[in-house]
Amino acid sequence: MNAAQDNLVRTDSRREFTVMETPTVEDGAAIWRIARDSEVLDLNSSYSYLLWCRDFAATSLVARGPGGEPIAFVTGYARPERPEALVVWQIAVDREHRGRGLAGALLDALTARVSADLGIREIETTVTPGNTASDRLFTAYAARHGARLERTVLFDGGLFPAGADHEPEVLYRIGPLTG
């Protein structure tokens, strides 16, 4: 694959391609909508998605449909205390584009880019026990890349505000990443 093709991914059996690229602030509203419509992600304010697209664009990707509209995204950041670790904050695919491997392709493309550009050598993310789709995504990612996957509870449900009835957030640490 040449450099011009690096941001393309085959997304289904009809041989359609989706462009993956750095998000812009103009993508913030669509990313917020995709997160809202996922019905599993914690929804942040619409303002935070605009900031994310401005301040953490280098560690995030958006996938675009045929008309250039965002159809999926992954957001992340390098941990200040461990700059070799990419924290994957959220990843979501618009409902009509699910089941084509787009989330895995986004994760692969993002980690390839940040490994090369920023020296990232491991991924961290949190998954609640009831989120089987995310568990499968990150477990498959680790297996595909031959990386170790460790799971530990990062935040117990009791740490969240009273009445939040929040499941524990389980830390998935995947690494080392090898190029």
Rank of each mutant, 00 (worst) to 15 (best):
T75K: 08
L51E: 15
E122F: 03
F155R: 01
E81P: 12
V93E: 13
R82F: 14
S60C: 13
P66N: 15
E69W: 07
H97C: 02
D108R: 11
R148T: 12
L107P: 11
T126N: 02
E69Y: 02
G130K: 08
L110M: 07
G157K: 08
R151G: 04
T152D: 11
E122K: 10
L61W: 03
E124D: 08
R95A: 14
R54K: 13
L137F: 13
R95P: 06
L51M: 14
D94H: 10
T152I: 01
T126C: 01
L107Q: 07
D117F: 10
D117R: 14
P129S: 09
R136N: 02
E69V: 13
V127I: 02
V88M: 11
E150P: 07
L137H: 14
R82M: 15
S115G: 08
G157E: 03
D55E: 14
R95D: 13
N44M: 15
A143Q: 15
R64N: 09
L149M: 09
V40A: 10
S60N: 08
G104Q: 13
D108P: 12
V87K: 04
A140F: 11
E84A: 10
T128Y: 07
V93L: 07
V88G: 03
A116P: 03
G68F: 05
T75M: 09
D94S: 14
T126E: 01
A103G: 12
T125Y: 01
D42M: 08
R64D: 04
V114G: 00
R121W: 05
G101A: 08
P83T: 03
L107V: 04
V153R: 04
I120G: 01
G119D: 10
W52M: 15
P83A: 02
G119C: 11
A85V: 15
R79C: 15
R95W: 14
G157Q: 05
G158K: 02
L107A: 04
T111S: 03
L86F: 05
G130S: 12
T126W: 00
I71G: 06
R82D: 06
A147F: 02
P80T: 14
L41M: 11
L51Y: 12
L86H: 10
E122P: 02
N44T: 13
F138T: 13
W89V: 06
G65Y: 02
V93Q: 05
V62N: 01
I123K: 04
D55T: 02
L102K: 04
S48M: 13
R136P: 06
G146E: 11
L51R: 15
T59Y: 12
G146T: 04
V74F: 12
D55M: 12
D156P: 09
R144F: 08
H97N: 10
D135Y: 05
S45E: 11
R113V: 07
V153K: 00
R151S: 00
H97D: 07
P129A: 02
G68D: 06
G101P: 05
L107G: 03
N131Q: 01
A147V: 01
D108G: 08
